[in-house]
Computed example of a mutant assay.
Amino acid sequence: MMTDPIADMLTRIRNATRIERPLVEMPTSKIRRGIAQVLKDEGYIWEFEELETLPAKTLRLHMKYGPNGERLITRIDRVSKPGCRVYRGYKDLRPVLGGMGIQILSTPNGVVSDRRARTEKVGGEVLALIH
Rank of each mutant, 00 (worst) to 15 (best):
M1D: 09
M1L: 11
M2F: 15
M2K: 14
T3Q: 12
T3W: 15
D4P: 06
D4V: 11
P5W: 07
D8Q: 07
L10M: 08
T11L: 06
R12M: 00
R14G: 00
T17G: 01
R18T: 02
I19H: 07
I19S: 08
E20Q: 12
R21A: 06
P22T: 11
P22E: 12
L23Q: 08
E25D: 07
M26W: 04
P27K: 04
P27A: 05
P27F: 00
T28D: 15
T28N: 13
T28L: 04
S29W: 01
K30A: 02
I31H: 03
R32M: 05
R33W: 05
G34S: 04
G34L: 05
A36N: 01
A36G: 06
A36Y: 04
Q37W: 03
Q37C: 02
L39H: 01
L39R: 03
K40E: 09
K40I: 05
E42A: 06
E42L: 05
E47A: 10
E47V: 02
E49G: 13
E50Q: 13
L51R: 15
E52P: 07
E52H: 10
T53M: 12
L54C: 06
L54E: 13
L54R: 15
P55C: 06
P55A: 05
P55T: 06
A56I: 14
A56W: 14
T58F: 09
T58H: 04
L59C: 10
R60N: 05
R60L: 12
L61M: 09
H62R: 13
H62F: 15
K64I: 06
G66I: 08
P67G: 09
N68H: 15
G69D: 06
G69H: 03
E70D: 14
R71H: 03
L72H: 08
L72Y: 10
I73G: 00
R75Q: 11
R75F: 05
I76K: 00
I76P: 06
R78L: 10
V79I: 15
S80R: 04
K81N: 03
P82V: 07
P82C: 04
G83H: 09
R85F: 05
R85K: 06
V86S: 00
Y87S: 02
Y87T: 02
Y87L: 00
Y87Q: 00
Y87E: 00
R88V: 04
R88H: 06
K91F: 10
D92G: 13
D92S: 10
D92C: 03
D92H: 13
L93T: 05
L93D: 03
L93R: 02
R94Y: 11
V96N: 01
V96P: 03
V96Q: 02
L97Q: 10
L97A: 15
G98Q: 11
G99F: 08
M100C: 09
G101C: 00
G101N: 02
Q103R: 14
I104A: 02
I104H: 03
L105P: 13
S106N: 08
T107E: 08
T107I: 09
P108E: 13
N109C: 11
V111Y: 07
V111T: 11
V111F: 06
V112H: 11
V112S: 07
S113L: 07
S113Q: 13
S113P: 10
D114R: 07
R116D: 15
R116S: 12
R116F: 12
A117P: 04
T119R: 14
K121Q: 12
K121D: 05
G123D: 03
V126N: 04
L127D: 00
A128C: 05
A128R: 03
A128L: 01
A128K: 01
L129Y: 14
L129I: 12
L129W: 11
I130V: 15
